[in-house]
Design a protein around this nucleic acid. Structure first.
Ligand code: SF4
Ligand code: SF4
Lengths: 135, 135
DNA sequence: TTCGAATCAGACTAATTCAGTCTTATTAGA
DNA sequence: TCTAATAAGACTGAATTAGTCTGATTCGAA
């Protein structure tokens, strides 16, 4: 179906929100949740993922929250998406050392290599788009 | 997760099979099913979808089967995929007249337009790849 | 004219994935 | 010490996907 997950969309929305917030101070999960009608717990987890991937950093306690760790010009949206989606590939076998463990058709499959070419092109679409371009 | 459905993969495999079969005669669903270890009923349905989309044609009865309706140079793989996947878009709202019916965030969403740009690029990746290129 | 091999069609079920919720712990400032 | 915030992970329900089942239709050959 080639659809992005909701988590990926929420991650992009949150990143954009933080980028637009003109530098000053943190954005809290609650704030983003209310602004974009995203369930609080869900956006909180997404933000935590962004922290883990060094795209954002966080501050606990009162007046705490999240903020971008780099300039929007330096953050590729593929990193934002991969922070929340582990498998961002068009097929199950599309990774280093793909094997018959990934797909029962692996041995008889004749479309792996052509699809790898397409995968690379799609990767480039995301890799070449930076947060600053979606503000 | 951005993954292609199995039906889409099967459609590509079946189209490739028919293209490689040097013109002569039909390919039966059973034949393709056995060659690629795809459940018979499933590949049969996929082939029927290809017929509906005028990518292949069929002949009933003994010695019947399926064959491509056009040259592989003229068949874009986006048509093969769309024959089996109705919604081939990265978000729910990504179609003509998308509205809040499609997504509860539609009104507050700030990433629709940037994602539409990305959608267009992805569409091009598939549109610009023809069956002949994956043989 | 009967039989078998094939397409055609749609309902149904099982498996997997995704979205969202719940619970509890931790941290830091007022 | 109270409160507002992040942190983490288990859990549930919903939605989607993959595969199965049943039966009809069509055509060619014996
Ligand atoms: S069908 Fe082929 S391309 Fe798809 S996952 Fe299996 S091996 Fe990979
Ligand atoms: S979140 Fe935005 S982009 Fe995604 S489906 Fe909803 S409206 Fe469209």
């Amino acid at each position: 179906m080639l659809k992005l997950s909701k988590k990926a969309e929420y991650a992009l929305m949150a990143a954009k929100y933080m980028a637009l917030k003109n530098s000053s101070g943190y954005s809290s999960a609650k704030e983003i949740s209310e602004n974009y009608q995203i369930p609080y717990q869900l956006v909180a987890k997404v933000l935590q993922n962004l922290v883990k991937s060094d795209i954002a950093f966080s501050a606990k306690g009162m007046n705490g929250g999240f903020a971008l760790a780099k300039k929007p010009e330096l953050i590729s949206i593929i990193d934002i998406i991969k922070a929340v989606e582990s498998k961002f590939k068009i097929t199950d076998c599309m990774h280093e050392n793909g094997s018959e463990q990934d797909c029962s058709h692996f041995n008889c499959c004749k479309i792996k290599d052509p699809l790898a070419v397409i995968q690379k092109k799609i990767d480039n679409v995301f890799t070449d788009t930076y947060l600053v371009q979606i503000l």
